[in-house]
Design a binder for these strands. Structure first.
Length: 463
RNA sequence: GGAGAGGUAGCGAAGCUGGCCGUAACGCGCCCGACUCGAAAUCGGGUUAGGGUUAACCCCCUACGUGGGUUCGAAUCCCACCCUCUCCGCCA
């Protein structure tokens, strides 16, 4: 599941509210939920669609807040623009009079009063527009019609499972227990150097992390058609806003104290914003980008969760996939990208399942999300290892990412997708736990052996 | 860090002694048409985005890196900031 879901709200609103009344099917047709999502026009003309989306997401926001601001804004705009038109024509008149030697003092005096009124209107308008803009930046994406309704992660249906859950003749250990004899993962020194949720990797563990990332990048670039990118690991406020991490989720991020820079919580942020404020050619689509980067998350609100081991760290590495797609093909691209993530787990022979996130569990920017969950024998359960989302035009609107249609015509917003392929630290955990033997050693998946210099096992005596 | 140059449509670029210059000169690209069997070349026309109003058109407002200021009126004058390029210094 995505880290930006609104868990804190799911227990505030636990019963269906009156405004959640059913929407007629024709209103929710593909057309209505297409490229105009969270467009000003959609909010103005079909507010009931957004209202239902907010309800399905358990969001406390109400469209009527927007509507009130929008009506006030338009009233102020109408008066202000009328006065500005008057001023423009009067100024042209002054220009003419000055050239012909006429007297313009009467007009200039009248414009003094007009300007004063424009200024007053402008100040109120600015306040209203700021409030409206804040609302727009805080409203989550509208879930796609194919997303199952639900309140929380309990309601996420399983799409399919792959592989056999392994059986052991002994009680399988968690990865941090294995590391007690295998070494490699140094939680104590990680805490000494930085604090809790930081880990030092030694020897085989450091190499395994590198091997996994290399394998993933090689498969994506050679077999799945992605272009490898090395982006900045710190980005500015505008970039964070483009993907939807700001303004709502600042507390989840690490921020530089003296600079307005943030450490990226995922490579999705720099990769998606690569084409911000740009107009692409339709022939360039779809674009696939991949990057292996560290990710930094404050994990605010995760106190007491996954405190041991590598599952939840302040710093972890991830290979990310980002795709830019034509609006008509973005859901095909989502299926394709999910396949790219699944291919990695299959290559590593790790059992997993795919779930579809329900409306109440989806991330802020997403219109539809699949989570891949890998089997962890030590925990005896499936744990998230990848999250693949179609954000449709939600991020593209924020970041202004457009493409020009092949036949010419006005630029349209592209659709953006992102997915982990995969979270490297968690994959390392899965490799350890699924490959463990009774003597505490670990058998490595065949696909990894060439990347480990021919090494097939991790043995206790290794350093 | 020092010195200088620059930021104007999809791209290049003019304007920068304030008004007749922003649906923005000029060139490229793109679209439509003419010519052609067809194409190239040539010729003619068209081609910014966002918002308000509207059934739609018309019309109106805003935008010349960003934010302020002066003025009846700012691409143009003033102030601050951001970014790019060149040279110098420093540095893995």
């Amino acid at each position: 599941m995505n880290n930006y879901h609104i868990t804190s709200l799911s227990f505030i609103i636990s019963v269906p509210l009156p405004h959640c009344a059913a929407i007629p099917p024709h209103v929710l047709g593909a057309n209505a939920l297409g490229a105009t999502m969270l467009d000003l026009k959609l909010l103005q003309r079909q507010p009931e669609i957004v209202e239902k989306a907010l309800c399905d997401r358990n969001s406390p926001m109400r469209v009527e807040e927007f509507t009130a601001l929008d009506e006030r804004r338009r009233a102020l705009l109408a008066e202000s623009e009328t006065l500005k038109a008057e001023r423009n024509s009067a100024s042209a008149e002054v220009g003419k009079l000055k050239r012909t030697g006429g007297d313009a003092s009467a007009i200039m005096e009248r414009m003094g009063a007009v300007n004063a009124r424009i200024k007053v209107l402008g100040e109120e308008l600015e306040g209203v527009q700021t409030a409206q803009n804040d609302w727009m930046l805080s409203v989550p994406n509208v879930p796609h019609t194919s997303v199952p309704l639900g309140k929380s992660e309990e309601d996420n249906p399983v799409l399919h499972t792959w592989g056999q859950v392994p059986t052991f003749s002994f009680t399988p250990k968690e990865h941090w227990e294995l590391a007690e004899t295998l070494g490699g993962l140094d939680f104590d020194r990680g805490a000494k150097l930085a604090g809790s949720r930081f880990t030092v990797y030694w020897g085989w563990a450091a190499r395994l992390e590198r091997a996994l990332a290399s394998l993933f990048l090689d498969i994506h670039t050679r077999e799945h058609g992605y272009t490898e990118v090395q982006p900045p690991l710190m980005v500015n406020r505008k970039t964070m806003t483009g993907t939807g991490n700001l303004p709502k989720f600042e507390e989840d991020l690490f921020k530089m104290e003296a600079w307005d820079y943030f450490l990226i919580p995922t490579a999705e942020v720099p990769l998606t914003n690569l084409f911000a404020e740009e107009i692409l050619e339709e022939s360039m689509l779809p674009i696939g980008l991949t990057a292996h980067t560290p990710c930094f998350r404050s994990e605010a609100g995760a106190y007491g969760k996954d405190t041991r081991g590598l599952i939840r760290q302040h710093q972890f590495s991830k290979v990310e996939m980002v795709r830019f797609a034509h609006p008509e093909r973005s859901f095909d691209e989502l299926e394709r990208m999910r396949g790219h993530a699944e291919a990695l787990l299959q290559r590593l022979e790790l059992p997993y399942r795919v779930i579809t996130l329900c409306t109440g569990d989806m991330g802020f920017a997403s219109a539809k999300t699949y989570d891949l969950e890998v089997w962890l024998p030590g925990q005896n359960k499936y744990r998230e290892i990848s999250s693949c989302s179609n954000c449709m035009d939600f991020q593209a609107r924020r970041a202004n990412i457009r493409f020009r249609p092949a036949g010419g015509g006005k630029p349209e917003f592209a659709h953006t997708l992102n997915g982990s392929g995969l979270a490297v630290g968690r994959t390392l955990v899965a490799v350890m736990e699924n490959g463990q033997q009774e003597d505490g050693s670990v058998v490595l998946p065949k696909a990894l052996v060439p990347y480990m210099g021919g090494q097939e096992f991790i043995l206790p005596q290794q350093r």
